[in-house]
Design a protein around this nucleic acid. Structure first.
Lengths: 368, 368
DNA sequence: CTGAAAGCGCTTACAG
DNA sequence: CTGAAAGCGCTTACAG
């Protein structure tokens, strides 16, 4: 295939006749090739698509003309016949959150490996736009779509999704025929909180994600799980939603700091939130981790570049993308008819932003 | 248009008959609608596309059937006729560099505003793949493509680009009919370096971008411009290429630190590089900015969240994307026939990572 | 092995 | 206002 492609652009670069235009502004079509080669368009098609019986010499003659003319088949026509466009779409809420580009990159690699192209719709946070996009995608005959996170309700999604292969990532709606992939948000948040508890913290705040996302809910549940297991009642005054961006973490922490309730550690809904949390703490004169410990979630690349380096929960973002793509192609090809719901494992990466609370640390030193 | 869309998915959600399938696995087509309404397919087409003369009552009857059946026109067929797919592509080198998502977001908004869809090709760093992608895009009849940065040589691009509307961003190749947008890399780097010089630095190192990119070249030129203007000869021992990622900045700084040549400030090729530079300095026991000042380039969102907050050159990334999209649509519509090459202004954002060199600072204090 | 014909799902002159 | 027909650029049985 690639060899074929190379031929094609070799011709585009080299040949004097390779100007792509049959006339003024009509691109060269299969008819032009057929005429130039003195064969029917069926023969040109056969020469191009291999497989079918055609004499080696006819094929070569046609291919030479194809090169000379710089002919490129029109995929719109091919797709119309095939009923498939060779295109996959991903719908996501916020491409400026580094978590998504990493995921999209993995998806794009898989999509490319299969010779397909990737459409990007930046809409999952706006239900109206997401629905409109989905409809447009269907009209364009995309073969499948991966829905990343987002607010789109299951009902709405179900309504618009018929006839489309769909895989969701990081949302827990169960739709007929729709597989999903997500990492173990609840377990991850539980482990992150447990890590702080193990360090000796007993007053742990939580700055989560936006309300209404299953990811936010799951991570909050994990946080509470850990507290409960340690016999600590969760204090609503120490829990705050965020927006999965730096700002939300910053603002929520400001608010937390203004309350009478004390805390020596914060579990953040994701890394961007954690960065905002740290900024607010620093601004309030609290040192991380000496005064307050902070843990994030995602392990985006920058988590290890901020100071202090961020303790966080690592998701294998690439795996998430690759699994989503794999499941989507199974759905498209009909290999998989009953959906699966995969939960990928996560682990806590301990870096510099978490430490024993000040008092305990002193006691420890005294003992040692 | 949106109203129309709303109708459509209202029907998809509500109607009992709206199942999209005419039979087993054939989607409903215009013929099904025509048959159900007892009219010709031409009439259905007219009812859907407005404009043409059709009685209000026939239109309504057809539209009701359309809703009832959940019919969605096949855009592949429409596009084949129109010779245009309503699709735009962007080719970029590295979506995990936060600079690009911000740009892509702006482009996507413009593309959406025009009712088009955006294809994403993650290939500009691999010439072979970029060419293959470009060819595939042409076959899919995309209306235009925005090429972001990347290594793709002008010649190669020229060969494959005929018949496609193209706009380049952050590269200085001049191709017939191809407009370009970029920020003032040279001026920006010059201003950033000047800022350090003004602070009193005389030994300023440079950790740039990958070799072979015009962006890298321009920023290095700006750096040298400023030195020259100050009567300082640039020292090749203090200049190093990077890769526009954290790692490159980190590694290059390690190498710089191992050399005998001294420096009290570093101009980094971009913000990611600057973050790597700071990590290496910290690891070597140098404080930023007390021992060494660092300035970045791009002003990605995280530049103001790392500690110390990064002094950097702000590009209006959104403007870059919006201008690129606008120029592309001018090319597509034929409004613009002679290409333009726009250079957008930049400015230095002074934050915490730059300060007077230690010695000067002390002198200053003594004096004061 | 090769060609003529039908057809993919639409839109748009052309008649009426 | 409405329908029959042609055509967008291809692929694929169907004949020969």
């Amino acid at each position: 295939l690639l060899g074929n492609r190379e031929n094609l652009y070799a011709s585009l670069l080299g040949q004097p006749g390779g100007n792509l235009f049959a006339s003024e502004d009509r691109l060269v079509t299969i008819h032009d090739v057929a005429a130039a080669a003195g064969v029917s368009i069926a023969t040109v098609s056969r020469a191009l698509n291999g497989g079918a019986r055609i004499s080696a010499q006819t094929r070569q003659r046609v291919l030479d003309i194809v090169d000379g003319l710089g002919y490129q088949p029109n995929d719109l026509a091919r797709s119309l016949l095939a009923g498939s466009s060779g295109t996959i779409a991903v719908i996501l809420p916020d491409i400026t959150n580094p978590f998504f580009p990493e995921l999209v990159k993995a998806v794009e690699e898989e999509v490319n490996r299969r010779g397909n192209l990737l459409l990007l719709c930046h809409s999952a946070d706006d239900e109206q736009k997401a629905l409109a996009d989905l409809i447009q995608l269907r009209r364009k005959q995309v073969d499948g779509v991966i829905v990343l996170g987002g607010q789109l309700s299951g009902d709405r999604l179900a309504g618009v999704v018929q006839g489309l292969a769909v895989v969701t990532v990081d949302r827990d709606v169960r739709l007929p025929g729709v597989s999903s992939v997500q990492s173990d948000h609840r377990g991850g948040a539980r482990a992150a909180t447990q890590h702080l508890l193990d360090l000796g913290h007993t007053q742990v705040a939580f700055v989560g994600g936006p309300k209404g996302l299953s990811v936010s809910r799951d991570r909050q549940r994990g946080y509470r799980d850990a507290l409960k297991r340690a016999g600590i009642a969760h204090d609503p005054a120490l829990e705050s939603p965020g927006d999965f961006l730096e700002d939300g973490g910053y603002l929520a922490t400001k608010a937390l700091l203004a309350k009478p309730a004390k805390f020596t550690a914060v579990v953040a809904g994701n890394d961007l939130t954690a960065i905002g949390v740290m900024a607010a703490l620093l601004e309030a004169g609290r040192t991380v981790p000496d005064d307050v410990s902070v843990v994030g979630y995602d392990d985006i690349r920058l988590a290890s570049y901020v100071r202090p380096r961020l303790t966080t929960v690592r998701q294998s973002t690439g795996d998430l993308g690759r699994r989503a793509a794999a499941l989507l192609y199974e759905a498209i090809s009909g290999t998989r008819t009953t959906p699966v719901h995969e939960v990928l494992p996560v682990d806590v990466v301990i870096r510099e932003s978490s430490a024993a609370p000040a008092l305990i640390a002193k006691r420890g030193r005294r003992r040692g």
